[in-house]
Write a protein that binds this DNA or RNA. Structure first.
Length: 277
DNA sequence: AGGAACGTAACG
DNA sequence: CGTTACGTTCCT
């Protein structure tokens, strides 16, 4: 079922099976995968793709497609009361743009961004033809008044001439208030909760905590993750009470790496956000 | 740099 | 509430 991947296997001690430690490691390797690790990882690519596929079936009629992508899973939003031992981010319900009864927050934010020049709408020829001759602001139909803003804006998220611009989300992710434009920076809070998913699980020491402090999870697929049972002899096992660390033979390869500082998109051109150039 | 200790998130 | 284990800090 599982394939040994060289990228993970190369980190093992390949000095030879003769040493007792290596024999133990091999024994652990041969043990079955723990049941908890057989579950699809909630943040895994496959799970993400599954969700995306599911959402794509029903995205046509509502904002649920985008909304589902931007919201953490229900499992990540535990219903129990958070232990507020440290300052945490405000509860999403206070500032949830997508749950806004009218959806005006997002529309308003987009409008303000457009005014500030941070957001540009780039119509495709097809859409351009479709809207040609119509006024973009306060035009005919539903977009005339404030409440029509939603009807206008949300479909745009799914259509071709309002691309979900990661650059926009990058701006949003750094915001402190609903929309701030002081000191040359601009951001929108509230979407940050969803952007966190897009940015990946990251931890940035000294990076302000909050979203970045969320714990990463073991990948469940690398060789150490597939091991069951602790060696009981490594430093982590010996100091389990005080060390609070997993057996070093079971430490996920991904978690051994330094957490990324953020979600980075690299395009063939090498530019992070070519549309911002 | 690596390990130990600790805080605490996540989960059962 | 107990357990597990990730993230951070401190120490060597």
């Amino acid at each position: 079922m599982y394939l040994l991947r060289p990228c993970c296997a190369h980190t093992l001690d390949m000095s030879g099976p003769s040493s007792p430690e290596q024999q133990r490691a091999n024994r652990i390797l041969s043990e079955p995968l723990r049941r908890s690790l057989k579950r699809p990882h909630p943040c895994s690519l496959s799970e993400y793709l599954n969700n995306t596929n599911r959402l794509s079936h029903r995205h046509s009629s509502s904002s649920m497609g985008v909304r589902g992508l931007l919201h953490p899973t229900a499992a990540q939003h535990r219903p129990t009361q958070p232990r507020q031992t440290k300052p945490r981010r405000a509860h999403s319900s206070n500032i949830d743009l997508w749950d806004s009864p009218s959806g005006l927050h997002l529309a308003h934010a987009a409008e303000l961004l457009m005014r500030a020049g941070a957001l540009t709408l780039t119509p495709t020829p097809r859409d351009q033809a479709g809207v040609e001759g119509e006024e973009m602001e306060g035009g005919s139909g539903a977009e005339g008044d404030g409440t029509g803003c939603v009807a206008d804006f949300l479909p745009l998220l799914g259509c071709s001439w309002f691309p979900l611009n990661p650059g926009l989300f990058a701006l949003m992710a750094g915001g402190g208030g609903f929309l701030t434009s002081g000191g040359g920076s601009m951001g929108i809070a509230g979407i940050g909760e969803g952007v966190e998913v897009l940015r990946g699980e990251s931890s940035s020491p000294g990076g302000g905590g909050g979203a970045g402090r969320r714990k990463r999870k073991r990948c469940g697929e690398c060789v150490p993750c597939r091991r069951t049972g602790n060696c009981e002899e490594c430093s982590a096992c010996r100091n389990r009470k005080t060390g609070h660390q997993i057996c070093k033979y079971r430490k996920c390869e991904q978690l051994k790496k330094k957490a990324a500082t953020g979600f980075e998109m690299v395009f063939p051109s090498g530019a992070a956000f070519p549309w911002l150039q």
